[in-house]
Design a protein around this nucleic acid. Structure first.
Lengths: 340, 340
DNA sequence: TTGTAAGCGTTATCAT
DNA sequence: ATGATAACGCTTACAA
């Protein structure tokens, strides 16, 4: 650090013009009149001296940071890297950069990091950490921050979001299992205070009922987090209920992975004894044994669209918050098979 | 955005003092004399008004951004999230924030992102993207940037780094295999223009020779990237050479995963027919089938130490660049077994 | 113990 | 078509 950057003054001096002229040339604002002659000279000098606009001075002046804060609950969950890359790719395209924050699934950390982002004056916020009822987000919006939710959404707050159609996804999973002949289907549900956990649970009940299969309470277990451990624990509880079942719909891939463990621990095998479906089609989902049948959602593109959304909010005057819903797809792999 | 922040002037006004007094109080510089009375008043007012120092003005003034750039070659590789979290945790502790950049394993992107970081005036750079011979890094250092390498190192350039002892790690892996009775051991080597790939390859040859086992050229295959596909391709080449072997030392976990595929494709099984070792003990390494025997390295702590290193470089006058080496450990799991 | 003022590098509003 | 100048919000000598 501490290299002396060339400033507008430096290039102005070299060209024998005033620095404001240089600023005008380099910014190429509409409707400005500048002689091509001097403009060329200035551009050449700027290039020679390696002029780069000082981001602090610029931001101070225009009151924008050209950054956005991105919060994820757990960077180690493989769903997030593709999302983050999509976000960054789109942001970079517009000269924006992301500040990344990992909340470690802790509300307390969420607050801390949001405070940090606000302190950094990020122009917008992309949050993958939403809870169904989320005062933190409500506050941010009330304060006028531009926020876009990704993957998860909140209830009773008007906020931009890009999510997938959870109901459609779960319906595909359940129908697939039904077609394979399964009738006793268990559900390892996600945290109910998170929209995905709740919506997928609702959808599960709904599809089952539409098929005339009243879902059995004992065949549903709720997890407190989207982690393998929780998935294993949950399915183990179902096993211990003694209730028979031949397939499990897990609310996400990590949970499904935990189900693998529970099944193995019972001395059973997947899919011969129990079929399992996941959700998200996270990287490596195809690498486990067995490769996971799951619901694919376009993570990277969701990231791009979230970035797109936050950028338009930053630029334009905020109208109605955009709600973008992408469509999930069933991807058939090795963890589901005909009822044994 | 665009919320009118309270400035030093606002709180000065409220207290009937000059804004410079407020600045002094809030910064608590050593050896400043300020009456406790007015100091209290100021602190209370600042809290009430929710004063936060404007980062642009501050950075402009002190010529520091309190950010560091972090570059990874591929965020989707599970080794990086823990490293990144370690970095961020340590940085946040000192009021610093990271700008993350994913180079997608492309040199071209590396340049672009480094330029962006420089443009953002990051106070330092933590790079997980180093090549053994890396002009980009050489240039950064020549320009006076504070750079710390993580995981990989460069040759013939004095640069701070936190890496693991590759030779020791590979030695553990090979010895473990030898103890299991293996003699024909293959090596799926990493990219040789990357320090880890090269060092691990060298170490492999070295340990084998120390055991009096001249390594067979046909039992070594080189990969062009650390990816599953490359691992699969490489081991397939070895299979096709027709040379017999009963174990593979892969240069990292992703490569090892590819080896699983190749083994399966041959109609063989791991570890019954072929034992496999990985390197890094990335998240999920224990979740594959079979769980991967690999070399554990303390990713999170390495991240913390890299952050620590860059912070001391930023603060103090740069003396000799720190070289930190952490120690790897063998973790025994299901992918290795006695020679069949 | 506190106030004054210069300056960090920009952009934008005046003039000229 | 270009130059001068005031801000943006802050830190920090230097005065008082």
């Amino acid at each position: 650090m501490a290299r002396a950057r060339t400033t507008l003054r430096d290039v102005a001096q070299k060209c024998g013009v005033h620095l404001s002229t240089v600023s005008r040339v380099l910014n190429r604002k509409e409707g400005y009149a500048i002689s091509e002659e001097v403009a060329d000279k200035i551009r050449k000098a700027a290039a020679e001296l390696g002029y780069k606009t000082n981001p602090f001075a610029y931001s101070l002046r225009v009151n924008r940071s050209f950054t956005v804060g991105v919060l994820v609950p757990d960077l180690s969950n493989p769903v997030f890297p593709p999302i983050i890359r999509g976000i960054e790719h789109r942001l970079a395209h517009s000269g924006y950069t992301a500040f990344l924050g990992d909340t470690d699934n802790k509300v307390e950390e969420e607050h801390r990091i949001i405070e940090r982002m606000k302190g950094r004056q990020t122009d917008g916020l992309i949050l993958a950490t939403a809870h169904r009822s989320d005062d933190l987000i409500k506050t941010c919006i009330a304060e006028g921050y531009h926020v876009v939710l990704i993957n998860r959404s909140v209830e009773d707050t008007a906020v931009a979001s890009v999510i997938n159609d959870d109901a459609a996804g779960i319906e595909m999973a359940v129908r697939h299992l039904l077609e394979l002949g399964h009738r006793q289907i268990a559900h390892v549900a996600g945290p109910q205070e998170i929209s995905t956990g709740y919506q997928r649970y609702l959808a599960f009940l709904d599809v089952m009922r539409k098929q005339g299969l009243e879902p059995d309470e004992e065949l549903v277990a709720f997890c407190h987090a989207y982690s393998e451990d929780e998935g294993k624990l949950a399915l183990t509880r179902i096993f211990e209920s003694g209730k028979r079942f031949t397939a499990v719909v897990a609310a996400n891939d990590l949970l499904a992975l935990g189900c693998y463990d529970a099944i193995e621990q019972q001395g059973l095998t997947c899919p011969d004894d129990i079929s399992v479906t996941g959700y998200n089609d996270m990287p490596f989902a195809n690498k486990f044994k067995p490769p996971l049948t799951t619901i694919h959602i376009p993570l990277y593109q969701m990231g791009e669209r979230a970035a797109e959304a936050v950028l338009t909010m930053i630029q334009g005057p905020l109208s109605q918050p955009q709600k973008i819903t992408v469509h999930p797809e069933l991807v058939l792999r090795g963890s589901t098979g005909p009822r044994g």
